[in-house]
Design a binder for these strands. Structure first.
Lengths: 252, 252
DNA sequence: GGCCTTACTTGATCGAGGTCAATCGAAGCT
DNA sequence: AGCTTCGATTGACCTCGATCAAGTAAGGCC
């Protein structure tokens, strides 16, 4: 994991108002004094390390978590040691939204690399959002966004072929990294091929073969976890469905 | 469509407080005067008919819709006339939650049979939820529930085979109908085989074959849109993943 | 009633991608 | 360094479900 920088402890102590992720995870148009209030309920812990859990399936839901640096995967432990990867979470993204209703976590969240995570106790947050309309509004938007993202993913898994799935995944990473001010074309994947395959509903071997094929076709360069997207345009094309009329699953 | 009863106009005028769906779509523990307030912003229209749209992809988002009777499908119009079915919505279910963030509908909603639908203007609802903490709480729960349902669906499409998909679909219908006080084992499907297949990521032919197979195996009786589940137990087993160790997609 | 359109069913064939198996290479350990 | 382990890659083969192609039955309309 030497490709990932160590998180300085100082970084952890930065308040919401000065966090570089403020525009991502903070309500837009929130008054400064309200930011203070929100800041007051956020817990900041020491950096977590690869393999640490934010929570596990079955645990009582208490807090939402916001990734500050690093990355987290959520997964649903299936029968017999097998697991189902539900998502990968990058800085600025919120984890735990699916557990609000039942007040129990249906999935587990595991840190993929050394990461800084903010914890937001939900009951406190809910009280706060009661007295701050724009915070409530932002929360509605956040939840709604999660729904529409899941919907897109659903579409991907339901009808798209293996190529489109991997291309979509790579472009999603690219887009999300760019939004966070990082390189959109040159990055390290913090998850294994196995986890990618599991997430996309593909066998590890298929993921591996696709990486090789994409490289052969000049779409990207890949070396282990290091990926460089050299032809975003072509990847987009693969996704958008003009792949020279590829085996487009029935659909109708 | 003679199998579906016509909605009397009277039914439409019933206020939230006396609606049989109150326990489904109303906040639990909402004070009577608050129910009145909510009731005040809900619009009730004449019954809609098969093919009518609640909204179309691209339209500005203004309201959430609650199915009172009948059923609705949401779908995303894909390239070239093809569409992607995103979900089927039964009485008590809310439609439009995915559009809150962008304030634009990314999908269309079409009525599958004569249906009564309540319209809830979102901006008014949001104001109201600002002053009624338990309404806000219920809304958080509702949005969260949608997320966890999408997550389950995602799992289904990512890793499950055709049998499991159809079995899951049928059990989902069964469970939802039971919750609404209708028969869990004897019902009419308001959507076509084609729409079921599209929704589950399967070809029409596969859906048809599976219905036949399930019938042959004594799991259900099917005649056109009329379905009778005669062995819920066995269907559950198909879903849960103890199908005598069937071709369980890699997963790991 | 008879025609027509649309939905559903059933059979035959094909291919994307999963499974099995072997090899390779990198990171971690003593 | 040398050993071990786990992840990634590559090849051979096979299965599930898509696609193609009829054929059948039901509702709609004159």
């Amino acid at each position: 994991m030497s490709e990932h920088k160590v998180i300085s402890f100082e970084t952890m102590r930065v308040a919401c108002r000065s966090c570089t992720l403020a525009t991502l995870c903070l309500p837009v148009g929130l008054a400064p004094e309200d930011v203070e209030r929100l800041d007051g309920i956020v817990k900041r812990s020491r950096p977590l390390h690869r393999g640490d859990h934010l929570f596990r399936s079955g645990e009582r839901f208490r807090s939402l978590y916001v990734v500050k640096t690093g990355s987290v995967k959520t997964y649903s432990p299936a029968e017999e040691g097998g697991e189902q990867v539900l998502g990968f979470h990058l800085p600025g993204e919120v984890i735990g939204l699916d557990a609000i209703e039942k007040e129990v976590h249906a999935c587990s969240a595991k840190v993929l690399e050394t990461s800084a995570i903010c914890e937001v106790p939900f009951s406190r947050f809910e009280e706060l959002s009661n007295s701050i309309p724009s915070l409530q509004h932002q929360m509605y938007r956040l939840l709604s966004k999660e729904i529409s993202q899941d919907t897109e993913m659903l579409l991907l898994l339901g009808k798209k072929g293996a190529e489109e799935r991997l291309a979509t995944f790579l472009l999603s990473m690219s887009r999300r990294l760019r939004k966070r001010g990082l390189s959109a074309t040159d990055f390290y994947l913090s998850m294994s091929r196995h986890e990618i395959g599991n997430y996309l509903g593909l066998a590890v071997e298929t993921v591996s073969r696709l990486f090789t094929r994409f490289q052969d076709e000049g779409l990207l360069k890949v070396n282990r976890k290091h990926v460089q997207l050299t032809d975003l345009e072509a990847l987009e094309e693969l996704v958008c469905g003009t792949p020279s009329d590829h085996h487009q699953q029935h659909i109708t």
